[in-house]
Write a protein that binds this DNA or RNA. Structure first.
Length: 428
DNA sequence: GCGATCAGAT
DNA sequence: CACATCTGATCGC
């Protein structure tokens, strides 16, 4: 939309202020060293890491903002050109280093963009952040919530990161003669590695850029780029594969550990499981209930998904019970998921409809969304079929099994897009 | 030839 | 399915 005032994790031209929640690349699409549209607000840690990703950026545009403080922006109303004030507060998202949510206050009311977040129900940092948010709202309801709906499905329920890290430790200590490969990204899961290192009194190998990140973040000297110093290596997730592990095992006995909220799947599951049949723990497959929704993910624990590979439910995104807890807390009038698919749309309200029906402002609901409230997921598995037009067609089993609503388009691609907030509601 | 965008894979 | 990331192809300049 033309004439927006502020953009969050969205970098196209036309806003007067831009906000970056964290430095994962799916939130920086469109940002580059040559980007220079307007001031960019982010947390202190994000600003510190920023040059690693965008070395030639015009840093005079960066505005580091303190978590827990209200900041005032004087902007111009896009429609009238008259001055308009927006206030905002960054709040700890407890996702990866530097990650924050942004709470906005203006003529539109209160709007919260969560970015990616994990607020464990009894987590110390999450509780502090939760109190900060409630204090900032001061009894007001949230008018707009832009929610990290990555795992907004009751099928997703995983332990705290501390428990999951303990599972990693147990896998490593039960393989005393193996080399260990752990798949991680360019940012995030540092605390898991720290917990492993301390508990087993062992250093952890990381690749050179990652070591630089660790140093900038001020982690103690437990990370190294010298392979001879440790049998535990954290490697980029994209370089972690079945083939990699098979290759490594020709040299030395090696196991891989994949920390993820999603089971790490070697191959997509094509077969059929009878309802009620239990899976062996070594299986890579998941069982479907008769309505097509997955079971067995609840309280899912360590899973050996391959001869050499273990999947551990360590997630930097909130799982469903945490999302539910969060939504109950902020009582939003309007919710929009920040993660969507171009081929299928996971309506973030779907499994929250009971919670939202009392507070939800029906007049703000996109008709597409309101139609869905109270509807049941589609049942059963379908055969894959080319999508056309607007008529209902059969959908791939993987899509219906997630219990999502289908919006067909030509490409199968996940998108995570930021948002542009304009003067009078109408988010996006 | 370069950056932005997209498809595909891990 | 997709956690986030990289590589390679293609498009427009």
């Amino acid at each position: 939309m033309e004439g927006g005032m502020i953009s969050v994790d969205r970098w196209s031209k036309g806003s007067q202020a831009y906000f970056l929640t964290h430095l994962h690349s799916d939130h920086t699409n469109g940002l580059s060293s040559s980007w220079s549209y307007a001031p960019l607000f982010c947390s202190r840690i994000t600003a510190k890491l920023f040059p690693l990703k965008f070395p030639d950026f015009n840093f005079s545009l960066l505005r580091l903002v303190e978590i827990g403080s209200w900041h005032r922006l004087s902007l111009l109303s896009p429609s009238t050109g008259s001055p308009a004030t927006v206030q905002f507060m960054p709040i700890d998202a407890v996702h990866c280093p530097g990650a924050v949510m942004f709470l906005f206050r203006g003529v539109f009311g209160h709007a919260l963009y969560t970015g990616d977040f994990r607020w464990e129900v009894n987590g110390e940092r999450a509780m502090k952040a939760r109190n900060m948010l409630l204090d900032a709202l001061d009894g007001a309801k949230l008018d707009f919530l832009y929610l990290d709906n990555t795992y907004c499905n009751p099928a997703f329920c995983f332990p705290t990161r501390e428990v999951a890290a303990q599972q990693v430790i147990e896998i490593i200590s039960s393989h005393p003669d193996h080399d260990i490969i752990i798949g991680i990204d360019s940012l995030g899961k540092e605390d898991m590695l720290l917990q492993v290192s301390r508990s087993l009194n062992i250093k952890i190998w990381v690749w050179p850029e990652r070591l630089q990140t660790m140093h900038l973040l001020g982690y103690p000297d437990i990370f190294t780029t010298r392979t001879s110093l440790t049998r535990v290596r954290a490697v980029p997730r994209y370089s972690f594969s079945n083939a990699t592990l098979q290759g490594l095992n020709k040299q030395r006995p090696t196991i891989g550990i994949m920390p993820s909220g999603l089971p790490w799947v070697v191959k997509p599951f094509e077969g059929k499981w009878r309802d009620g049949e239990s899976l062996p723990v070594t299986s890579t497959n998941r069982r479907l209930a008769s309505d097509g929704t997955p079971v067995d993910w609840n309280m899912r624990s360590v899973e050996k998904v391959h001869e050499y590979i273990f999947s551990v439910p360590y997630s930097d995104h909130s799982c469903f019970p945490e999302i539910k807890h969060f939504v109950q807390l902020v009582k939003p009038r309007n919710v929009k998921g920040i993660v969507s698919m171009s081929s299928c749309y996971v309506n973030p309200l779907y499994y929250l409809s009971d919670l939202l029906s009392s507070t939800y402002d029906k007049t703000c609901v996109n008709p597409e969304v309101s139609k869905d409230i109270g509807k049941l997921p589609r049942k059963g598995k379908r055969k894959s079929e080319e999508f056309t037009g607007t008529q209902k067609k059969d959908v791939p089993s993987e899509v219906s099994f997630l219990g999502v609503r289908i919006r067909r388009v030509s490409v199968l691609r996940r998108t995570r897009c930021g948002v542009k907030i304009v003067e009078c509601n109408d988010p996006d």
